Computed example of a mutant assay.
Amino acid sequence: MEKHNYQRLVTIATWVATCVAVTLLVIKSSAFLYTGAVSILASLIDSLMDMGMSVVNLLAVRYALQPPDKEHSFGHGKAEHLAGMAQAAFITGSAIMLLFSGVTELLDPKAIQHSNAGISVMVISTLITFALVMFQRYVIRKTNNTVIKADSMHYAMDIYMNAAVLVALLLSRFGWYWADGLFAVLIALYICYGAFGIAKDSVQNLLDRQLPESFQIQVLNCALAVPEVMGAHDIRTRQAGQTKFIQLHLELDDKLDLYTAHKIADQVEDKIVELWPEADVLIHQDPQSVVPQEKKLELE
């Protein structure tokens, strides 16, 4: 998609997430003070972390969207993956705090006051969060942005968390007061699991993990779609923010002059950029006779 539309969608998504986080923080704080339910405290702590992460996301996206400069010739896209690491740290911190509160309540369960008010707040929170996740998934389909993807994953977990809190509140109304603490502990463990997934994905991107094999096959097909290309090898790919970095060697007829070889490489690049307009492509031209046999076999 066009860079302008990408920037606009990502920026809107981060601002919407920030506004939602603030709204949820306010209403959940009121509900916890009114009911004293530790399961609502669990959701409140998570919303506090959401707000912190949304602020980090705003700063990261703003920085990542800056064009390449003299000191950052490959752009600033990896700021998005650093934000993903920050998200994982925030989420883990909230899980630890929540685990402590849940265990404390589980050991000494108490009746929840004004549970109806708590239930109403959690229903409203769930509906708001669901609407945000639907919007974020639309943005992800359009941009495949790492920060929005991680943020959406966390808000999707919030929906399950809110449902768990609702179950805990309902069970507490029937005298099962231990449910409040138990669900807080289970939610904390679930949050830790989600944080691990976010951290793992962010680390792999920072380490320049190769893009999926299906992507590389598409790159190879783009090269082979140009009639003069006799093969391709050493396909290397990685991603930083929006930008996909693609490198490959083309196998061409030995007798081609440099100008013709360059024009063929331009055609291959055009086909790649047609599929991924945000791609940064680097192509090397090799005479077919100098390509080692093992590299040719690699593509079969």
Rank of each mutant, 00 (worst) to 15 (best):
A188T: 00
V22S: 05
I45S: 09
A111H: 06
L24H: 08
S289H: 14
S29R: 00
Y34E: 12
L169M: 01
G75V: 08
Q136D: 12
I128R: 00
V281R: 02
V268Q: 00
N5Y: 06
L107R: 13
A64H: 04
N145S: 15
F174V: 06
I124F: 11
Q66G: 15
L169V: 04
Q113E: 14
F174A: 06
R141C: 10
C222I: 08
G36T: 09
L58P: 12
L59V: 15
N162I: 04
G197K: 13
H114F: 07
S152H: 12
L189A: 00
V10C: 14
V139H: 07
A240E: 08
G194N: 08
L282K: 13
V56Y: 05
A188W: 01
L182F: 07
A37G: 00
R209H: 11
A261R: 06
A31P: 06
A150Q: 03
Q285K: 02
L224P: 02
I148T: 09
S43A: 15
W178D: 03
E294N: 13
D108I: 11
S47C: 13
I128Y: 00
D69K: 06
M1V: 07
G197T: 10
L248P: 09
A17N: 11
K271V: 03
N144S: 14
L24K: 11
A88S: 15
V139D: 08
L33T: 04
R137E: 14
V38R: 05
A83Y: 07
D158Q: 08
L41H: 02
Y138E: 07
M97K: 02
K142V: 03
T129H: 01
Q210I: 12
R62F: 12
T92R: 01
E269A: 10
I217G: 06
G181Y: 10
M157D: 02
L211T: 08
F32E: 05
T126A: 15
R62H: 13
I246E: 03
L299N: 10
K110A: 14
V147L: 11
V123W: 13
V16M: 07
H114Q: 12
K271N: 10
D158K: 03
V38Y: 02
G241Q: 09
C222D: 03
L132H: 06
V133Y: 09
R236K: 13
H4L: 14
A156T: 14
S43F: 04
A168R: 03
I124T: 14
Y155L: 12
S152P: 13
T143G: 10
M230S: 05
A232N: 00
N145Q: 12
L207W: 09
V10I: 13
E298T: 08
A195C: 07
L33S: 01
S54Q: 11
K142M: 11
S115Y: 08
H249A: 01
L252D: 08
L59T: 08
L252T: 11
F100L: 12
I112E: 01
A42Y: 05
S202G: 12
F90M: 09
E2G: 14
L275F: 04
H114I: 00
K149H: 07
G84N: 03
T104K: 06
S43K: 04
P277L: 09
L107F: 15
A31E: 04
V103N: 01
I119M: 15
L9R: 03
I45Y: 11
